[in-house]
Design a protein around this nucleic acid. Structure first.
Lengths: 189, 189
DNA sequence: ACCTGAACACCGTTCAAGT
DNA sequence: ACCTGAACACCGTTCAAGT
């Protein structure tokens, strides 16, 4: 065996990400990291070298999702023909869809929001900021209750996403619950 | 050491329940069962003899809670001066309070509802039945949306209970979210 | 630099051996 | 009957030894 090159390292990183995507999809965000390393055909130490925590792995895996959510918020904020409360509603639908990518992800996100040390914190805080912009604008039109906080909206949405991914949940459950929740957030008019 | 008597067995059962209550309160429903046995001062085999599954232990621990919820539903259904949708709302508030007894309990309840083999299934199904009676009556008055199912109401309420017990959640969060959710379930009038 | 896997301290669960 | 704890097959995480 020759000394590992930088290209080997890069390749191992990619193998680990692919393996993690598979394992998390099958078993949720709490899937065994040993199992991930095994699937990647790599030693467990190599996994820890590339991703020192589970959240670091998750962050790398979800990067494009988070980017998409930020872009989507910007585009919804700029859409001229969309009522602000409907923009909020549309964004929340996409956010919960993303949060249901892996079983256990809503929990990881809630934890990362509260833990500044998490590798997932920055992305989640940015997500919360997007929700905040959409929420405030919708509240300013008077169509969305003014006493609701961003945290409540996020917790509500992730709570529904969580419920929908429990065993027994149907695929349309999130949409139905979210529609109910949005109705609860809006003011008659 | 003499042969263990029936009284010893009974005593061990009580020690295990007290230890489990403590451990679950501190660490949630996924607390180590070895830790529970250790706290009870009993061999791990003894825990498994008395409670063959984690859900069996949980069921014994929550028995009085479930009984209380059933009684409460009956009493709310019989209250003459209470609007049916308010009875539903009041019961859901108590249900979510119960579900927040231990971190992870909302998840255990959702799982038990879907798994007929769980030792917790019967109690949870009875809980769902209580919710169903209150819901149907409230729907018959026209004040609660008729297209909502019991499962959706339970999932919604447990989702909010789950969200409120994640790190970062405040103590009044459930009440606020539940009030929003109830508003979403009701029809203007 | 980067990779590996043994080592440590834990789990859940079972079951032969004890009284 | 009831209790015990060793045994088995797993974890997450670290770190000395290898290239």
């Amino acid at each position: 065996m020759t000394k590992p090159t930088q290209a080997d390292a890069r390749r191992n990183r990619d193998l680990l990400l692919a393996a993690a995507r598979e394992a998390f999809a099958e078993q949720g965000t709490e899937a065994s990291l040993r199992e991930v390393a095994r699937r990647a055909g790599v030693g467990i130490g190599t996994l820890y070298r590339h991703f020192p925590t589970r959240d670091a792995l998750l962050e790398a895996l979800l990067d494009s999702n988070f980017q998409h959510l930020r872009a989507r918020a910007a585009s919804l904020l700029a859409a001229p023909d969309l009522a602000p409360h409907e923009a909020l509603s549309a964004w929340l639908a996409e956010m919960t869809t993303g949060a249901r990518t892996y079983t256990g992800l809503p929990e990881s996100i809630m934890a990362a929001l509260a833990d500044e040390g998490s590798a997932l914190h920055e992305s989640c805080a940015a997500m919360r900021a997007s929700a905040g912009e959409l929420l405030v604008r919708a509240q300013n039109t008077g169509r969305v209750r003014s006493d609701v906080t961003v945290y409540e909206v996020i917790a509500l949405a992730l709570g529904l996403a969580w419920a929908a991914q429990q065993p027994g949940g149907t695929s349309d459950l999130v949409d139905r619950l979210l529609s109910t929740a949005m109705h609860g957030l809006t003011v008659a008019g």
